[in-house]
Simulated scan of single mutants.
Amino acid sequence: MTRALGWVVVIALLSCLIIPGFIAFRVWYVARIDDRTPADAIVVLGAAQYNGIPTPVFQARLEHAATLFDEGVAPQIITVGGSQPGDLYTEAGSGRSYLTQLGVPPEAILAVETGTNTVGSLEAVAQTVRDQGGESVVLVSDPTHSYRSRMMAHDVGLDAWTSPTRHGPAVWTRENQIMSIIRETGAVLWYQYQRLAGSNVDFPD
């Protein structure tokens, strides 16, 4: 192996370590940000629901969104997410029902019942917000999902910041948080690859 080839191999190996390491740091760093700057809408990113009942992960997001609404962060909450094959309810519709149970006025909740992943959901949200004459949103999701969702929101033309939930299964244990950072690092790398390839296929949520 020549000296030049050896340096190429070393640089390639360092890149394989440095790039994922940097992304993992960004995932961890943005997960710690709780930005409650006033916006046009609070957007709750969808999660699983069963027969119209949000899972504990989804409930934690919705409860946090209700708190932000009560604080006056935005005049409306947008729930997003379609349905899986065989489902009778959508994630967005289930989220809307749960928010009304929490006391959020129905007229302040808009369910965008399209999208089966973060990319599709945020594209639909961006169009909805623009149709209303707005452009800014506060994204509510799990902490480690904040970096990727904010990146995607910016890519579809939204002014977006994040206020992740601080309770629920996603943050119960340190092990959960570490595994989430690892998973999200892979998801961000996949998203960046798809973006360079001109595709909008998202990492499975």
Rank of each mutant, 00 (worst) to 15 (best):
I19R: 07
A197S: 06
S136K: 11
M151S: 14
V137I: 15
R32A: 12
R150A: 11
T79E: 06
S15P: 01
I33S: 04
A66T: 02
I109V: 15
Q76L: 09
D131H: 07
V201W: 13
F69M: 08
Q132N: 13
G21I: 09
W161R: 15
I53C: 01
T173V: 02
A153Q: 01
G103M: 07
A47V: 07
C16W: 07
L14T: 07
L45G: 07
T165A: 12
P169S: 05
T116V: 00
N200V: 10
V125P: 10
A108M: 04
V201C: 03
A160E: 12
Y98D: 03
W28D: 14
Y89W: 14
W172Q: 13
P164L: 06
I19F: 15
G120E: 15
P54H: 03
N117E: 11
Q49E: 15
W190P: 02
T162W: 00
V140K: 09
A74E: 01
N200I: 13
N51I: 04
H154N: 07
V57L: 13
Y147T: 04
V129G: 02
A108K: 09
A111V: 05
L158I: 05
L68M: 04
H64Y: 15
G81E: 00
T55C: 01
A124M: 10
D155F: 02
A31P: 01
T165S: 13
A126V: 09
E135P: 01
T2Q: 02
L99R: 13
Y191S: 02
R36W: 10
Q76G: 07
F58I: 11
A108H: 10
P164V: 04
I181L: 06
S180L: 04
V9K: 09
L189G: 07
E63Q: 14
L122A: 01
S136T: 13
L196A: 15
V30E: 03
Q192S: 04
Y50S: 06
T144C: 08
Y193E: 05
A92H: 04
G6E: 05
V10P: 08
D131G: 02
T144R: 10
E184L: 14
G81I: 00
T118V: 01
T55W: 00
E175N: 03
V138I: 14
T90H: 06
T2H: 03
T55S: 11
L17N: 06
I109R: 15
V156W: 10
V44P: 11
L139Y: 00
T114K: 14
G198F: 04
T55R: 02
P143R: 11
T100F: 05
R166V: 11
I42T: 08
V112F: 10
M151P: 01
T173M: 03
V171F: 09
L189F: 04
E91S: 08
G86W: 00
P169H: 10
L88H: 13
A160I: 12
F58P: 06
T118W: 05
S15Y: 11
P75W: 09
G95K: 00
F203Y: 15
G6K: 14
G198Q: 07
P38R: 05
V27C: 12
A31H: 00
R174H: 02
A24C: 09
R148I: 08
M1D: 14
